[in-house]
Each structure stands twice: as structure tokens, then as C-alpha cells.
Write a protein that binds this DNA or RNA. Structure first.
Lengths: 209, 209
DNA sequence: AGAGTCGGCTAATAGCATTAGCTTCTCTGC
DNA sequence: GCAGAGAAGCTAATGCTATTAGCCGACTCT
């Protein structure tokens, strides 16, 4: 009975391969065990079960995702603050979309659906918070109020802006991945126009605030 | 052996109840059978199996969703065209979010993930197309070009605008439902600011195009 | 009333996760 | 160099899911 030489890290790595081919929802212990050349129950020596494995995979994906964003965000920008913010947010948005299109399964793992309401996922929450912080940092040159006061007519705050960026990019990517864009019109170009629109909106709303 | 008096429509209705409590991913024949007071295999007399049931549920949800949008969209607007478009798109966006928050499972069913790449779902595709058409109609007063020519710098087209609206609203709602907004800041208000921003962006991009 | 269809049932199969308990490999300490 | 311990594999068994096959009672129509 030769040993397969598994470990928690190795199992998670194999699980990532499954996620890449079958999607995050298609992650199954049976598929991982098959790749490892091992019987399914053997995996329980390394992970606590399917929920635990899903959490571990999500954590790795969030960290990888954040690392990608950070790489893009640390590029030095020149020019006036508004221009720097526009360049940064555009670069970040492109990085998010590129990640999602390259690794749809991992992108799905990054999204909270699976773990947001999971009490044992505080580590993932913290890691996800770091990725949001990267976006917030990119928007800093716009000089928005960090957060806004009460009232329905309060001006755009940084929290609002970060949420808008995340929503637009995430929504676009999800619709694209889910085949939600029926028309053959160039999706690439639509994405750039959406970013144009968002950036113009930032400047317009800040001006009138 | 008394009869339960089921039918395809009745089964789908029970399935919708399951979707409302367990989510679209939690839809299971076992749960539907339990609600119907019937053994699981009996359901096969009325639906073709779980994939078929999922399609039927999705179709109903898409139609219900579209009906909601239409109700909102047919309200008569007054004022200049830009103002009418702004009011319409804002009302539609609010309707989408309200639907999603009221029936998260049904909203998930509306999204293409489950059926977009399913060959037997052409009926759903057509129904979904009708909901997109409602949004396109609302944006009409803006007077955008129906679609745009080639080239990375082409101006904003109606196709781009519809995609932007869908992406922003869908992304916002998904993040909200998935618990993606960690901060306690008022989500309601952020949504309104995002709509402000989008509408301002439409006007800005059309002006310069 | 009788025939046929329809709508329920039980039984059986197969894929999944999980637990229990056994065996064997490997490494460490003497 | 060997003994023991613990780690890492295994098989077997349970329970949940969907699905198919085949049975049988009940409604309907003539």
C-alpha cells in the first residue's frame, strides 16, 4: 500500500485544478480524490470535509485575487489626481475582469456567496477586506469624504464609490460569464465604455457635491 | 391510495416555494415531493427530472421578473427626454433590487448561470430577452445610437448603455445578497448614489460623443 | 360496467459525503 | 537495528440525492 504523499496544501492545490475545470460549484471530494489517485475517505486525513475544503479553496483564491489587484495598483501614476484615480480604477477593473475570464471557477470562489454567511470563515472575510482596501486606495486621489453622513441626499462618499466600482465590474463580469449578453456586439468595448461612464460619473458627482 | 391531484404547474408552484425558502441552488426533488406529500418518483409523472424542473422554475421567474419591470416601465413620464430616461432607469433599477431582495431565490433563477448554456432553454432565452428590451426602451429618450461601429473609441451606444445598467444593478444586488458589503454604512443610500452616478455618466458621455 | 389511461407507489441502482474501524507505512527514540 | 507511535492509506457501512423500472389502484369515457 504505497503512500500518495498528500498534505492539506496538496489537496487544496488539486481542488483548485478541479475548480478550474468544473467550476467552484462542481468541486467534489470524489473529483479531488480521483486526481490524487486516492480513495475518497482518505482526504479526510487532510481536510475536515467538503465545507472545509471549499473554505480553504476560497481563501487561496481570494489571496491570489488580491495579489493580482495589488500588482496592478502599485504601478506609479503621473498627472493630476483625477487622472491618476481614473487610471488606477480602470487598471483595477481590467485586472478583475481578466482574472475572472481566465479563472471563472476561482472568481466564483472569491465571491461571498459560498462563505459570507459562514461563521468559520473570518479568515476569508479579512482577506476579502484587504482586496476591497486596494480599490479604496486607488480612489483616494479623488478626495471623496471617507464615508457620508445620514440623509438620502448626502454627497458621494468613498464607501459609495468603492461599492459602485465593485458592483459595476462584478456585475459586468458575472453577466458575461453567465452568457447574459445575448447580442454579438463587442463585449470588450462595452466594458471600456462602462468604465468611461463610471469615471465620468465620479467626476460629475464630486463636482456637484 | 388517494390522489394528490398534482400537475406540472402545481409541481412548479411547489418548487417555487422551495426556491423561496432554500434558494435556487437548494431546489431538490426531495423537498418538492415532501411539500406535495408524495414520494419522489411520483414527480416524474409531471416533470422530466431535476434539470427540467429547474428550467420550468427559471422560466416562471423570468416571466414574473419581466412583468414587474413592465409594470414600472409603463408609468407615464413627463419633462424633457433626459429627465424621462433618468426617471425610468431609476425606477427600473429600484424594481430589480426590490425583486431580488424580496425573492433572492427567484432572482438567482432569473440569472443565466443555470440555463444560459443549456440547449433546451431557448424559451427562457426569449423571455429574458424581453426583460432586456424593457430596459432598452427606457433608455430610448437619451437618443443614443442603437449600436456602435467598430473601434475602441466609438461613442456610447444603446447596447453599451443597457449592458452598463444591467451590470451595475445586478452587481450591486449580488454583492448585497452575498453579504459582500462588510461595512455597516447605509446600503440603500449607496444604491441611490450609484444610480446618480450612472445617470450623470450617461449624460456626460453622450454630450462628448 | 368495463377498458384504458393516468397518477400514485415500492424497489433497485448509482453518485455523492461522511463516519468507523482496520492496516500498514514511516519515522523517531532508545 | 528495532520497537512503538502516529500518520496515512484502505474497506465497509450509512444516508442523502436523482433516476429508472415495474406494479397497481383510481378516475374517465363510452
Amino acid at each position: 500500500m504505497p503512500r500518495a504523499g498528500l498534505s492539506r496544501a496538496a489537496v487544496v492545490t488539486l481542488a483548485l485544478e478541479v475548480v478550474d475545470t468544473e467550476g467552484f460549484a462542481g468541486l467534489t471530494l470524489a473529483a479531488v480524490a480521483a486526481r490524487a489517485g486516492v480513495a475518497v475517505p482518505s482526504l479526510y486525513k487532510h481536510v475536515g470535509g467538503l465545507p472545509d475544503l471549499r473554505r480553504a479553496v476560497a481563501l487561496r483564491c481570494v489571496e491570489e485575487f488580491t495579489a493580482q489587484l495589488r500588482t496592478v495598483a502599485t504601478t506609479e501614476r503621473t498627472g493630476p489626481p483625477d487622472e491618476r484615480a481614473a487610471q488606477s480604477v480602470r487598471a483595477l477593473a481590467r485586472a478583475v475582469r481578466a482574472f475572472a475570464l481566465a479563472h471563472p471557477g476561482r472568481y466564483a470562489a472569491v465571491q461571498g456567496g459560498a462563505w459570507a454567511h459562514d461563521p468559520g470563515a473570518s479568515e476569508i472575510h479579512e482577506a476579502a477586506g484587504r482586496s476591497v482596501a486596494v480599490i479604496a486606495k486607488a480612489l483616494e486621489p479623488l478626495g471623496l469624504a471617507p464615508r457620508s453622513g445620514a440623509g438620502a441626499t448626502a454627497p458621494l462618499s468613498e464607501v459609495d464609490a468603492v461599492r459602485t466600482v465593485r458592483a459595476l465590474v462584478h456585475g459586468f463580469v458575472m453577466l458575461e460569464l453567465d452568457g447574459g449578453f445575448g447580442l454579438p456586439d463587442d463585449v470588450e468595448r462595452s466594458f471600456e465604455r462602462a468604465l468611461d461612464l463610471m469615471i465620468a460619473g465620479f467626476l460629475a458627482l464630486r463636482a456637484e457635491g
